[in-house]
Design a protein around this nucleic acid. Structure first.
Lengths: 193, 193
DNA sequence: ATAAAACTACCGACCGGTCGGTAGGGAAAA
DNA sequence: TTTTCCCTACCGACCGGTCGGTAGTTTTAT
């Protein structure tokens, strides 16, 4: 039995029931341990949540920094970043769902610290958009709004996407990216504007 | 003291703490009643949650059906729908946040029923997109993906948007809509494709 | 007078967490 | 080589506290 096994089981439980509704007993059952034995590996329930959130954010930051370090043009960087992000959200779905939906359950101190790291991650995305705008590849949009829109589309995916459905994660990332790059309107739609 | 006062206070508590972390005592304090007195107006905690979700969905469905009943062109219908949606999400923020984030806490039976109604609501959006595609105003995108993208951007807004910030809700709806209709790429960006 | 609305007091269940204790394997001491 | 020791991993039992909910009574308003 390893600490990481407990974190994984906890992530699954937190995702399914939510942090407060999932009990330490649920987690213990999932790893076939007595509840008391969990405290040999972790300090408490909050400790588990914090470890999950830190780990999830670590993965995402690593992924994204790999992409922005390339010398691809901005629109292709964006596509790569979306592929990586959607990939993580589907591959490590439990971790991702807890990151996006359960960070509210952190106690104020830890939450403030976590939010600072999350903002740093969002700034990397915003800089990616800004790079495209300054290169005149992207239109002069409000970078903050565009970033939240981009992240919103992808984040909301975790609430409805099911592996094994009609689309793979990579196909979905491509369609999201196409939508963002080209928009909905046809030339006919444009001419009517 | 009216039932609706309790529902409003409960929505606020559920939004701030989450359904399970918010206690009946919290709700009672907010309406300056003893906890036991709540049970004169509502059947229980689940009853409160269900009433909030039903009410929130009622408002959204009414808003959206008003828009689709007009004879505006599809792209303008979309803009109107987004204005109405973003308006609700910011005006009735407590209701909306509970609708989008706390429906998971419904017991299985009620949840299944609620999800059916929510799917009906999403189908109205999808039909709106489909109408634009068939009129050749929108590109032949996958209507389901486009709908989830559209709703995702707007739904995620409730996690970061603050009234009194640099943008009003209506300005934000417009920027979202522009992004969706025209996309990010400039003509320079297109020429490089 | 009477019914609605609020109160006080209480319940069983479950929560996160702690306690003392133990099985067993490897290191240290004889 | 054998015995002592210690450490990791785990367990059953239990703690104080909080939860949603109920019973019975008093206050308030018509």
């Amino acid at each position: 039995m390893q600490r990481s096994d407990i974190l994984q089981a906890a992530a699954q439980a937190f995702r399914q029931k939510g942090y407060h509704a999932a009990s330490m007993q649920d987690i213990a059952d999932a790893v076939q341990l007595q509840k008391a034995s969990l405290y040999h590996h972790v300090e408490g329930k909050q400790d588990i949540l914090l470890a999950i959130l830190d780990h999830a954010l670590d993965l995402l930051i690593t992924d994204l920094e790999e992409v922005v370090a390339t010398d691809l043009p901005p629109d292709q960087k964006l596509r790569q970043a979306m592929h990586a992000y959607v990939g993580r959200l589907t591959q490590d779905a439990d971790l991702a769902a807890v990151l996006l939906l359960e960070y509210r359950s952190l106690e104020p101190k830890a939450r403030a610290q976590h939010i600072r790291r999350r903002d740093h991650y969002e700034r990397i995305w915003r800089d990616l958009i800004k790079e495209g705008v300054q290169a005149n590849i992207f239109q002069p949009v409000d970078e903050t709004v565009a970033t939240f829109a981009l992240l919103g589309v992808q984040n909301w995916m975790i609430t409805w996407f099911k592996l094994g459905g009609p689309l793979t994660a990579q196909q979905l990332a491509d369609r999201f990216c196409d939508l963002f790059l080209h928009g909905l309107l046809t030339s006919e739609g444009h001419s009517k504007q």
